[in-house]
Nucleic acid binder design. Structure first.
Length: 211
DNA sequence: GACCAGGTCCTTG
DNA sequence: CAAGGACATGGT
């Protein structure tokens, strides 16, 4: 029943891709992805959508606007995502980083992936998952996102590894194509939301798939 | 009312 | 380094 962790990861990628095919995921522009990546920390996406809508209404849905904005304005727009004071501080830190270090998203996009990742991780409030989300979905880089869902699903599938190890495993198995990275993450999250409870998988097609 | 959500940081032992 | 707590609103 068990192959190597590596081939198990490959199997998950294959099964989910066959099950879902191509699905749209995080279609916003780069500014919106950066902001959403922070807002979605420990938070349901539906609550993030509301905050993004308010930010847009108030012309605050860009790194440049957040850089200039008063913290109170930001707090009031993102309240629905919870942790709104902490997240306002994190958005400010991210906006400051982008504006002061790069001058804007445009020249930031020219930064090599590894260097950009290192530097993002230095920003207060940007951890591994947020950094990889920004890289993968904001800048179309092949940097795989490991979130709580991925960790849980891999656990269900018998791959008992830490998140940092899972990232390596998936990146070994995936083709070097940012779109494959995006799709696989999307599949995992969709699958987890659809079939996996907090503790155990229900009706887990990953467990008893004939492929 | 309890419990949880697409984390991250800070403090303790 | 591992464990525990804080951050906070909204849905089940």
């Amino acid at each position: 029943m068990s192959g190597s962790s590596s081939s198990e990861c490959a199997r998950i990628v294959r099964v989910l891709n066959g099950y879902y095919g191509h699905i749209p995921w995080w279609p916003g522009d780069t500014d919106e992805v950066l902001i959403g990546a922070v807002l979605t920390q420990q938070t349901r996406w539906e609550n993030v959508v509301r905050a993004l809508a308010l930010l847009k209404e108030r012309s605050l849905c860009s790194v440049a606007a957040l850089y200039e904005a008063e913290p109170r304005e930001i707090e009031s727009a993102i309240r629905s995502t919870g942790f709104y004071k902490v997240k306002t501080r994190r958005l400010k830190a991210l906006a400051t980083f982008v504006v002061q270090e790069y001058g804007g998203i445009g020249s930031m996009a020219e930064c090599p992936t590894e260097l950009l990742r290192e530097r993002l991780l230095r920003v207060s409030g940007i951890g591994e998952e947020t950094a990889d989300s920004i890289l993968c979905f904001g800048f179309h880089r092949a940097s795989f996102v490991i979130d709580a869902y991925t960790h849980r699903i891999c656990g269900c599938a018998g791959i008992l590894e830490e998140k940092s190890r899972l990232k390596v495993l998936f990146e070994e198995v995936l083709p070097p194509d940012p779109d494959a990275y995006r799709q696989t993450h999307a599949h995992i999250v969709e699958y987890a939301k659809e079939y996996c409870g907090k503790k155990r998988c229900e009706r887990c097609i990953l467990m008893n798939s004939s492929e």
